[in-house]
Design a protein around this nucleic acid. Structure first.
Length: 263
DNA sequence: TTCCAGGCGTATC
DNA sequence: GATACGCATGGA
C-alpha cells in the first residue's frame, strides 16, 4: 500500500480502484457523490470525503491512525486486486468482467448496517434502497444501532416507507437486542452455521443471508445469487463456477454483477 | 395502466 | 422439496 500523509490528507496510489465502480455499484448505499470525482460517506460514525485527484486518491481531513485503522480496512487495501483479477482471468467470462470494471473493490462494511441494508434490498431497486436508508439515518442522526431499532414497531417506522420490510428490520433488531442472536458470534461461525442463524430472522432468506456474510462479515466465499447472477449462471456457467474463483466467489460475484447489469 | 425492482413468507401439493 | 402467489412502494 503506497500512500503519503500531508496536511491532514492521505494521498493513496492504487491502480485497482475506481470510486464509481466501488461506491456506486449496489454493495453500499450510504455514499453520496458530491461532484464528478468526490464521494462523501461513513463507516459507522466516522465520516469521510474521498476524491480522485490526478493519479491519487485523496482521503480528506483524516489522520494516519484513522486511515490505517478504519479506511485501509474498509476499502480492503491490504488485498491485491491486481493479483486477484489475474487469477480470475483464467476464465474467459471472468476476464471480460474484470476488464469491464477494473476498479471494483469489496467494501468491508459494518455487520449490522449490511444486514439491514440487504433486508431492505429485497424485491426493491437501488434508488429506493438508498432513499429508505437515507431516511433511516436522517431520523437517528446516523445509522441506528440495533438497540435503537429494537424499540420501534413497523408502525413507528412508517416514515421509512419501507413497506413490508419494516417488520423484518424490527425482528432482526429484537433478536440481537435480546441476545437470541449475536452478529459477532455469527461472523466467527463456520459458514453453514452462520447462514442458518441469519435465516432465523424474518425476512432473511438465502440471498440476504449471503449478502450479510459477504458485505458485512467479509466472508468472500459467500456467493449471493440474485436475478442478475442467476442470469450469469444460466448464460455462462451452466455447470457451476470455474475453479479459478474458488475461495473468493463473493469478489468474483462483484465483477459479474456489474458486468451483466451493464452489458 | 401495468410492470418491475440485488426475495421471502405462506399455503398447497 | 417444489411451485405459485401476495407483498409496500415508487419509478418507468
Amino acid at each position: 500500500m503506497k500512500y503519503i500523509y500531508k496536511n491532514n490528507n492521505i494521498y493513496l496510489s492504487q491502480p485497482d480502484f475506481d470510486l464509481d465502480e466501488t461506491l456506486d455499484c449496489g454493495q453500499a448505499f450510504r455514499w453520496e457523490k458530491t461532484d464528478e470525482n468526490t464521494y462523501k460517506g461513513f463507516y459507522l460514525d466516522t465520516p469521510l470525503t474521498i476524491s480522485k485527484e490526478g493519479e491519487n486518491f485523496v482521503f480528506h481531513d483524516t489522520d494516519e491512525e484513522t486511515f490505517i485503522k478504519v479506511w485501509a480496512e474498509y476499502f480492503d487495501l491490504y488485498t491485491d486486486y491486481g493479483e486477484l483479477k489475474k487469477r480470475f482471468s483464467k476464465d474467459k467470462t471472468m476476464k471480460k468482467a474484470c476488464e469491464f470494471a477494473k476498479g471494483i473493490r469489496l467494501l468491508k462494511q459494518d455487520k449490522w448496517e449490511a444486514l439491514c441494508s440487504f433486508i431492505i434490498s429485497q424485491n426493491n431497486n437501488i434508488p429506493r434502497i438508498k432513499g429508505i436508508i437515507s431516511r433511516l439515518c436522517e431520523h437517528y442522526g446516523g445509522f441506528p444501532t440495533y438497540s435503537q431499532l429494537a424499540k420501534e414497531t413497523p408502525e413507528s417506522l412508517s416514515f421509512l416507507r419501507a413497506g413490508f420490510r419494516a417488520k423484518y428490520l424490527v425482528d432482526a433488531a429484537v433478536k440481537l437486542e435480546n441476545g437470541e442472536l449475536s452478529l459477532e458470534e455469527i461472523s466467527n461461525s463456520d459458514i453453514e452455521t452462520a447462514r442458518k442463524s441469519l435465516m432465523t430472522i424474518k425476512g432473511v432468506g438465502p440471498k440476504v443471508a449471503e449478502c450479510a456474510l459477504l458485505y458485512g462479515m467479509y466472508r468472500i466465499e459467500a456467493f449471493p445469487v440474485d436475478v442478475w447472477i442467476k442470469r450469469v449462471m444460466e448464460n455462462y456457467y451452466p455447470d457451476g463456477l470455474p475453479e479459478c474463483v474458488k475461495g473468493a466467489e463473493g469478489i468474483a460475484q462483484q465483477y459479474l454483477f456489474h458486468y451483466i447489469r451493464n452489458l
